[in-house]
Design a protein around this nucleic acid. Structure first.
Length: 427
RNA sequence: GGAAGAUUACCCAAGUCCGGCUGAAGGGGACGGUCUCGAAAACCGUUAGGCGAUUCAUCUCGUGCAAGGGUUCAAAUCCCUUAUCUUCCA
């Protein structure tokens, strides 16, 4: 949710920025008009309520003194009717305002490049050197199927396409990857480990910005207002929903492994094979609550935390900053990490780290009390994948494959694999 | 599944039958002060916060007694719905 005061006071600047994110100007003009009407109505109704309170006190006094108060009661009857009418109109206007505000995207930070789509994204850095193969590198699903550690066919049979079984050392490797990630974030990066609910209610989905605009992207439970989380960002960020934190608590870091469930509506035909685009995948998520003045430093640190995972696994990657047109709904600024996928001869997204500033905090009502002034202000919230586990698996299978079809386990994971250094075909 | 009772501010708790001097008593805790070398004790004081409107800011006003509706000039108090908890019955 945007800051209403900012919107009002700097309407031109804000609407220009929202224009860059695809919002129609006429909606914003209407929005501003409705906001004015809302304040008019509030002033009218509050004036009448004040009068009602005063006269009611006089009536009480007269009754106590056994005086006649009938005239006052008659006149107040009319005031009561007026108040009811104004409040009814006010309710409608507020609903209309809310419906517009709920679907307006966040404003981009000034450092974000302006552009329409991913072509305007800017590469910030490259790390590691893609390996040169002296054989034709296979896509990870072939490697996984040939090694008998990934089973997409049975996943489709038992669930649906875009589901799979990890089997044997495949399941072990997935578990090694996320345990390694969580340990790294907890032991070295200062995050608190969490296991959140995997189903959340509508308020939580609203708080982080998925609802009401992106309902078609998620799986909902029939006859219940519960949704399978599309990312652990939802339960982690909403942990402090509707709370006022103390300044000393900040910053606070959470990390959690969770499955993520996505309907992938509208991505038919894209990445139909392999681990890149699934209806259910594991992800280690990082979430931060920060004071506003530090949130961009925290974003840099969080991105570095995600990079650290890739560096320790020795997987080549690049960092890009998303342009205004490519950013998510809630983000003020987003860095994507893209890992090298040899069989596709390209970099693919493996992490997305965003500062949403106060956008989610306003929706979820997460605030903090400044210790010296006692003033209450919205926190800034950040979230990032650290990392998507399935895609990490894909990257390892492809980057660490050998000519004979075996896969060498990255050094950092060997202890998590119980000493296993290589996955090879059973003889 | 059925019946009865409960839900008041950071915590406990009065007020609800019988609506109006409740701008929610009282206590605990917390915080500040006096005293002290320092602390404890004692004493004095503060303690709905939030939200919204207004304002440069203050002042002020509206809202607020589990949540949401209703009745009334007026609701913590009367009525309805929902949630949670307790006890009892199956």
């Amino acid at each position: 949710m945007l800051d209403m005061k900012l919107f009002r006071n700097e309407f031109d600047a804000v609407s220009k920025q929202l224009g860059q994110r695809g919002v129609d100007k006429t909606i914003l003009d209407d929005f501003l008009k409705k906001d004015e009407r809302r304040r008019e109505l509030i002033q009218e109704t509050e004036k009448l309520k004040k009068m009602r309170n005063e006269v009611s006190d006089q009536i009480a006094l007269k009754k106590r003194n056994k005086e006649d108060a009938q005239a006052d009661i008659e006149s107040m009857r009319n005031v009561g009717r007026k108040i009811k009418a104004i409040d009814a109109e006010l309710e409608i206007v507020e609903k209309e305002i809310f419906d517009i505000a709920a679907v307006l995207p966040n404003l981009a930070h000034e450092s974000v490049p302006v552009g329409e789509d991913e072509n305007a994204n800017i590469e910030m850095k490259k790390w590691g050197k893609p390996r040169t193969f002296d054989f034709e590198p296979k896509p990870h699903w072939e490697i996984g199927e040939e090694l008998g550690i990934l089973d997409f066919e049975r996943g489709a049979k038992v669930a649906h396409s875009r589901f799979l079984y990890y089997k044997g050392l495949g399941a072990r490797l997935e578990r090694a990857i996320y345990n390694f990630m969580i340990d790294l974030h907890v032991d070295e990066h200062g995050y608190t480990e969490m296991i959140p609910p995997y189903l959340v209610n509508d308020e939580a989905m609203f708080g982080t910005g998925q609802f009401p605009k992106f309902k078609e992207d998620v799986f909902q439970i029939a006859n219940e207002s519960l949704t399978l989380i599309p990312t652990a960002e939802v339960p982690l960020t909403n942990y402090y929903q509707n709370e006022i934190l103390e300044e000393e608590q900040l910053p606070e870091y959470f990390t959690a492994l969770s499955p993520s469930f996505r309907s992938e509506a509208g991505s038919a035909g894209r990445d139909t094979r392999g681990l890149i685009r699934l209806h259910q995948f594991n992800k280690v998520e990082m979430v931060k609550f920060s004071k506003p003045e530090n949130s961009y430093d925290e974003l840099e640190k969080m991105t570095a935390n995600a990079e650290d995972v890739l560096q320790k696994l020795n997987l080549p990657y690049r960092v890009i900053v998303l342009c205004t047109g490519d950013m998510g709904f809630a983000a003020s600024k987003t860095y994507d990490l893209e890992v090298w996928i040899p069989a596709q001869d390209t970099y693919r997204e493996i992490s997305s780290c965003s500062n949403t500033e106060a956008f989610q905090a306003r929706r979820a009502k997460i605030r903090y009390r400044q210790s010296d002034s006692g003033k209450v202000e919205h926190v800034h919230t950040l979230n990032g994948s650290g990392l998507a586990v399935g895609r990490t698996m894909a990257a390892i299978l492809e980057n660490c494959q050998e000519a004979d079809g075996s896969v060498t386990i990255p050094e950092a994971l060997v202890s998590y694999m119980g000493g296993i250094t290589q996955i090879s075909k059973k003889k």
